[in-house]
Design a protein around this nucleic acid. Structure first.
Lengths: 333, 333
DNA sequence: CGGGCCTATGAAAACGTTTTCAGTGAAAAA
DNA sequence: TTTTTCACTGAAAACGTTTTCATAGGCCCG
């Protein structure tokens, strides 16, 4: 179980560790032939550098942290894949921590990342109203960081997002064009700033067509969509369309509407933000706004690397394009 | 950005680093008062040990690797959560690598884990026919490892599983009891040994009731379920039940059957192994065998810790109980 | 031919821990 | 009083790298 170290190579080749290290790291002050011998021996003896030693000397830990608010949806998973796609080929370890939508857990996770001495973090806050202090302090302390997905309102940090406002506007416009007149928005939680943006897009497009603006508290999960439908029915439901904060709420709403005997989309159309594969699995398939999740992860990772390499990198906001996919849950009335 | 080290503490307290280290690690050869002073100072100066240094000295990297065959299903994600639940409180970092069902990628991931010098791995092989050589070599080399979910056929390694045979037997028996007579099994890929076990459970229960045994190649994904249904229809479909290798295949089959105008469960019942939340989201809800995913992750993690602490720990196989959940996709004929 | 400048290498320090080996002084045992 | 033992602490080595710093020989230029 003993690993080959640089010392073993040095001994084998009757060279000093310095020379071997230089050969391995591609220093130019080294004889080409010596370099060749070292590389060959390294290959033969199966040498791989000890990351801990590298890290101790170099100051960098060679690991980055990814903090996500949930791991229930395919959204998060795809972003994580995008992130790993960038880091793993570079030999950088990725540590993932899930807050399960609990800001207290998120805080623990942040502190854990600090203990782990990660070189940077990529995060998506549970709530923009929580942990901004700690994130700010870490940033102040020099920890590179990039946010994705949820808007880190009030935090001057690099971020990769989609255009919540515009995409909400356009997808609802499609619903209107297909005949909807009384659309209700199932709004996201107030502590997620995207809720505000999506609601604004919704309000503006309804205004543009002179239609009444109406919304209900939606929440985040499938149960929330379920409950919101119940409430709407109890109030004597008078809508022909629902625009949900996210896919889960949309699916929850749609499933419950169907249980209650409504036909979708004939009686009521349903659309949602944050669509993933799931939108194509439910019946009818759900019209949704689908962010380029993998690409978002890649972009965030690249931005983080830039920051790690040059701490003076300015704060940037990257807005990627989300696709609007019209499916069976919306259609001609 | 300079972190407090043990040296800083020593200087501050006019003690030697050895003493500080001992106080911190809870060595008993230390004056209680001194220990108190050190702890107080550590708290005050916000000292946290440098994992890299610890690791270099201690030989252990403080990280473990988790190798999964896919991250599409909730199954894997839940197992990962169970694993993290055990390791994070202990300050052990978890590195996750996804093979996307490609044994070549899986091999890369294994090598990556070796480079990262993880203290152990928890894995679920894409295919029991691949990478057993490398896994065996690593094990031989002293790397602690635990397998979960898919049967690591031919590898003498600790593992946590559910009873594929018995649970397949029982869930299909329920279908029979509800009136199904011509059930077709959509079999999993041959390079996953669980396919064999589930098929065996299916064959035996059909035999017990004197019913004809029939199966088709199923595969792993939703598309596979879709395709298998098409093939069945092309052959002049004569079944009243389908038992799918996993949830994805089950959902794919069910969705396509519905597209083709079949009523579920009136015309055809559908059940599947490896159910997750998704089974409750689709319509109708899918009858499925649900492994205790989180618990499996926890168990695997605990077994790995045992092995790391004592390399002489004997190889164990832990079989956990999977729940059979009867839902709308099966029912009285 | 002597000084200066490359090229290639080695020696040693440093990173932050843990741990072994040696003490120290004081109390206990003789 | 002398010796032993004990409780506590310090010095230093070690883990595997990278990175000065130093130095050897060889070459060019005057």
């Amino acid at each position: 179980m003993k690993r080959t170290t640089i010392k073993d190579l040095a001994a084998r080749l009757s060279l000093s560790v310095s020379t071997v290290s230089r050969a391995l790291s591609g220093d130019r002050n080294i004889n080409a032939e010596t370099r060749g011998r070292v590389l060959a021996a390294a290959e033969e003896m199966g040498y791989t550098p000890n990351p801990a030693a590298k890290s101790m000397r170099g100051g960098r830990s060679g690991a980055i942290g990814v903090l996500v608010p949930e791991m229930e949806t395919h959204y998060t998973i795809q972003v994580i894949k995008g992130i790993q796609h960038v880091f793993y080929p570079k030999g950088i370890r990725v540590i993932i921590a899930d807050a399960a939508e609990d800001p207290a857990v998120e805080r623990e996770n942040l502190l854990m990342m600090e203990r782990f001495m990660v070189d940077g973090i990529i995060f998506c806050q549970c709530s923009y109203q929580h942990n901004a202090d700690l994130l700010g302090a870490l940033q102040e302390h020099g920890l590179p960081m990039v946010s994705f997905g949820r808007i880190p309102y009030g935090l001057a940090v690099s971020q990769v997002l989609v255009d919540d406002y515009a995409k909400s506007f356009f997808v609802v416009e499609k619903m209107i064009q297909s005949g909807c007149r009384h659309i209700c928005h199932f709004r996201g939680p107030d502590n997620i700033y995207n809720s505000t943006e999506r609601a604004r897009g919704f309000r503006d497009v309804m205004g543009k067509y002179g239609l009444p603006f109406e919304d209900r508290h939606g929440g985040l999960g499938m149960e929330d969509g379920y409950v919101a439908v119940d409430r709407l029915v109890a109030e004597g439901l008078d809508v022909d369309g629902i625009f949900a904060f996210n896919e889960a709420v949309g699916v929850g709403a749609m499933n419950h509407l169907r249980e209650l005997g409504f036909r979708i989309p004939e009686d009521i159309s349903v659309a949602a933000f944050s669509g993933t594969d799931l939108s194509k699995v439910v019946f009818p398939q759900l019209t949704s706004v689908e962010p380029p999740m993998f690409e978002m992860g890649r972009a965030a990772a690249q931005m983080l690397i830039d920051q790690v390499l040059d701490p003076a990198t300015p704060v940037r906001t990257v807005v990627l394009n989300a696709e609007i996919n019209l499916r069976g849950s919306t259609g001609k009335k």
